[in-house]
Design a binder for these strands. Structure first.
Length: 571
RNA sequence: GGUCCGGUAGUUCAGCUGGUUAGAACGCCGGCCUGUCACGCCGGAGGCCGCGGGUUCGAGUCCCGUCCGGACCGCCA
C-alpha cells in the first residue's frame, strides 16, 4: 500500500517487527468490540485488517465505541505487541494503541456482512456490488484478475506480440450469435453491431504485417446467460503470421504453463492431445473433464458375439467404474436418461466378488475377466458414439460423487470437423467460416464436406473450453472454396465478406490464432463456479445490472429518435 | 421460448393436512462486562408473508396470473 497524507502503512502490512513505530492508517470499520474496560476496533483496507485498541481511561475510548460498521476512519498511534495474539490474522501479533482518531465518513448499516463468509444472497450482493467487492475475498479476486492480465501482457510482449485495439462499433456479419445492435445516427436506417469477437479485424492486422497481435478485449453476444456465460465477456485475443499449427500450440502451451506457475505456483503436468474423434469416442464430448480417468471403450464386436437381442445391429460402449456400488435407484435414473435418448443401458455390479446383472441369462459374468469390485455399464444404440456418452459420464461422476484423479487436467482437442449440419440439414461452419480445412482432406471439400477436418484446436481445462483457435484460409481462392461449400455464391460471399476477400487478395500471409475466455479461465484459477465471482460488475441470468438498474427505458425523446431511425428505408 | 427451485423482520431461514397474537439466529438500538477477535450476558424495537386476482366462514399456507433471483434445456459460428 502506498503511503499518502492519510496513512503511513496499509493495515494488513504491519508485523511484530514494526512494534514501537508511530503508525497512521485509514480504512473501514469492520467491527467494534467494547469489553467495558477497553475497546477493540478492526480496521480494513485493501491490504488487510488491523486491530485498534484503547483502554477505558483513554480519551479515545468513547469515540471508538461510537463507531459503526463500515465507517471510514483514520487512526494514529503506536504499534504494540498484543497480550493475546490471534494466529488467524497476518497482523495478529500486533495492535494499534489509538492516540488520534478522525471519522472521514459515516456509513449506513450495510444490508449484509462485509466479510468473506457473508450472509447476503447473490441478488443483494449484486444490488450493492460496491459493498460486495469490499469483502476481502472479492478484493483478492480483483487482484488475481489484474495480475493475470499483467502476466499475459508481459509474456506476450516478450514473445513479440503487439497490443492493438480494434473498434467496438463494427458491422454485423451473418452466422454466429445474435448481435447487439447500435443505431447509426449519421446514417439513418443503418446500424453498427458490437463485436462478437475481433476475428476479422485481427486477420486484417495480419494482412497489415503486424506479425503477432494480441488484445485483451470485450466481446458481446446477445444470447442467454448461464453460470459460465455472460453476454459481455473478456477475451485474450491473439493472431500470428508465418506459423504452423504446431508452433501456435507450443507458444500458447508456454503461456498457459507460465500463467499457472506465476499466478498459482503450480506446475501443470502433461497437456494431453486428443483428436475430436477420439474425444467423442472415449468421452462423448469435445470438452471432456479429464480430471477423471473414466473413459468409454467400444465393445461392439464382442457384444455382437453375445446372445443379447437388443445389442444386435447396435454399437455398444462399455464403461467401468472401479470400486463403486450404485443403488437400484441411481441405476434406474441413468437407465431412464439413456432411454430418453433412444439408447439401451445395462449394468453389471461386482461386490465382494459376486456379480449382479440383468444380462446373466445371456452370458456368464465371469467371462468378462473383471478383477476388482465395481460397476460396469453397457450403452448401446445405433447413433453412438455421441453426446449421450458424455452426458452419462458426467452424470455418473456427479451422482457417485467420484473424486477427481488430479486437480488440473489440460488437453488440446484437435482436428475438429470443418462443417456440421444444422437441424434443418443445412451445412454450416462448425467453428467459423474462416477456418482452414485440413490439407489432407482438401480434395473431399466439395464431395464429402462433412468428412473434412479443420485446422482448429481447443484448449480444454477441467471440462471447460478455455481457448479456441485455428489456422485461417489465407488465399482468396481457398476462402472462396469454403464459402462455396457452405452454399454461398461468389456474389454473396463478396457482398458479405468482400473486405476480407479483397484483403486476402492483397498479400495475406499464412496466419492463425486463438482466443482465451479470460473470465471463465479466471473462474477456474480462483476456484469459483460462477463467472459472477470474477467479473467486477456482472449481470443476472436475465441480463440485468441490479445496481445500475440496467437495462432501462429510454426518455421519450431518445425513443422517438430510435423509432425514426428504425423506420427509415434501408437502401 | 421451455422445465424446475426459490421469494416470510435489515439479513439468512423455519412456519405441518388452511385455524387464535407469524417464530429463530445474526444484524440494529439500550444496558452490563479486564484481552476480545463470529467477544459474552441482559433487555428492546423491528413484518404489505414479492405483486394482482380467485377458492374459503377463514389464506404466509390451496388455485390462476404476473414480476424478480437461481439452475438446466433450447440458444451460445
Amino acid at each position: 500500500m502506498q503511503p499518502t497524507s492519510y496513512r503511513t502503512h496499509g493495515c494488513g502490512t504491519l508485523r511484530s517487527s514494526d512494534v514501537g513505530t508511530i503508525v497512521r492508517v485509514a480504512g473501514w470499520v469492520r467491527r467494534v468490540r467494547d469489553l467495558g474496560k477497553f475497546v477493540f476496533v478492526d480496521v480494513r483496507d485493501r491490504s488487510g485488517i488491523l486491530q485498534l485498541y484503547a483502554p477505558a481511561d483513554s480519551p479515545w475510548y468513547q469515540p471508538l465505541c461510537a463507531l459503526g460498521r463500515e465507517w471510514v476512519i483514520q487512526a494514529e498511534g503506536r504499534l504494540r505487541q498484543r497480550e493475546s495474539p490471534n494466529p488467524n490474522l497476518p497482523t495478529g501479533e500486533v495492535e494499534l494503541e489509538v492516540t488520534a482518531l478522525r471519522v472521514l465518513n459515516t456509513a449506513a448499516t450495510p444490508p449484509f456482512l462485509v466479510e468473506d463468509e457473508t450472509d447476503g444472497q447473490e441478488e443483494l450482493r449484486l444490488r450493492y456490488r460496491y459493498l460486495d467487492l469490499r469483502r476481502p475475498i472479492m478484493q483478492r479476486r480483483l487482484q488475481q484478475r489484474a495480475r493475470l492480465m499483467d502476466i499475459l501482457r508481459r509474456y506476450l510482449t516478450a514473445q513479440g506480440f503487439l497490443e492493438v485495439e480494434t473498434p467496438m462499433l463494427i458491422r454485423s456479419t451473418p452466422e454466429g450469435a445474435r448481435d447487439f445492435v447500435v443505431p447509426a445516427r449519421l446514417r439513418p436506417g443503418t446500424f453498427y453491431a458490437l463485436p462478437q469477437s475481433p476475428q476479422l479485424l485481427k486477420q486484417l492486422l495480419m494482412v497489415a504485417g503486424c506479425d503477432r497481435y494480441f488484445q485483451i478485449v470485450r466481446c458481446f453476444r446477445d444470447e442467454d446467460y448461464r453460470g459460465d456465460r455472460q453476454a459481455e465477456f473478456t477475451q485474450l485475443d491473439c493472431e500470428l503470421s508465418f506459423v504452423t499449427r504446431e508452433e501456435i500450440l507450443e507458444i500458447f502451451e508456454g503461456l498457459v504453463r507460465h500463467v499457472y506457475a506465476e499466478l498459482l505456483g503450480i506446475e501443470v503436468g502433461e497437456i494431453k492431445r486428443l483428436t475430436y474423434a477420439e474425444a467423442m469416442q472415449r468421452y462423448g464430448s469435445d470438452k471432456p473433464d479429464l480430471r477423471y480417468d473414466l473413459a468409454w471403450e467400444e465393445v461392439t464386436a464382442w457384444a455382437h458375439r453375445q446372445a443379447v437381442p437388443f445389442w444386435q445391429n447396435k454399437r455398444v460402449f462399455w464403461l467401468w467404474v472401479a470400486g463403486v456400488k450404485a443403488s437400484r435407484n441411481l441405476q434406474a435414473r441413468w437407465k431412464a436418461l439413456a432411454e430418453a435418448a433412444g439408447l439401451s443401458l445395462a449394468f453389471i455390479q461386482r461386490a465382494e466378488g459376486t456379480y449382479t446383472t440383468t444380462l446373466s441369462k445371456y452370458f456368464a459374468p465371469e467371462t468378462l475377466g473383471l478383477s476388482e469390485d465395481g460397476l460396469g455399464l453397457w450403452l448401446a444404440g445405433e447413433k453412438l458414439p455421441g453426446p449421450e456418452l458424455g452426458l452419462l459420464r458426467s452424470t455418473l461422476i456427479h451422482d457417485l460423487n467420484l473424486p477427481p484423479q488430479r486437480p488440473w487436467a489440460l488437453a488440446w482437442i484437435l482436428d475438429f470437423p470443418l462443417f456440421e449440419l444444422t437441424p434443418e440439414g443445412r451445412l454450416t461452419a462448425a467453428h467459423h467460416p474462416f477456418v482452414q480445412p485440413h490439407p489432407e482432406d482438401l480434395d473431399r471439400l466439395e464431395q464429402e464436406p462433412l468428412s473434412v477436418r479443420s485446422l482448429a484446436y481447443d484448449l480444454v481445462i477441467n471440462g471447460y473450453e478455455i481457448m479456441s483457435g485455428s489456422l485461417r484460409c489465407h488465399t482468396p481462392q481457398l476462402q472462396l472454396r469454403v464459402f462455396r461449400a457452405l452454399g454461398l455464391s461468389e456474389a454473396e460471399a463478396y457482398q458479405q465478406f468482400g473486405f476480407l476477400l479483397e484483403a486476402l487478395g492483397y498479400g495475406a500471409p499464412p496466419h492463425g490464432g486463438c482466443a482465451f475466455g479470460l473470465d471463465r479461465w479466471l473462474m477456474l484459477l480462483t476456484g469459483g463456479t460462477s463467472l459472477r465471482d470474477v467479473i467486477p460488475f456482472p449481470k443476472t441470468a436475465s441480463g440485468a445490472d441490479l445496481m445500475l438498474q440496467a437495462p432501462a427505458p429510454l426518455s421519450p425523446e431518445q425513443k422517438a429518435e430510435i423509432l425514426r431511425w428504425l423506420t427509415v428505408e434501408n437502401t
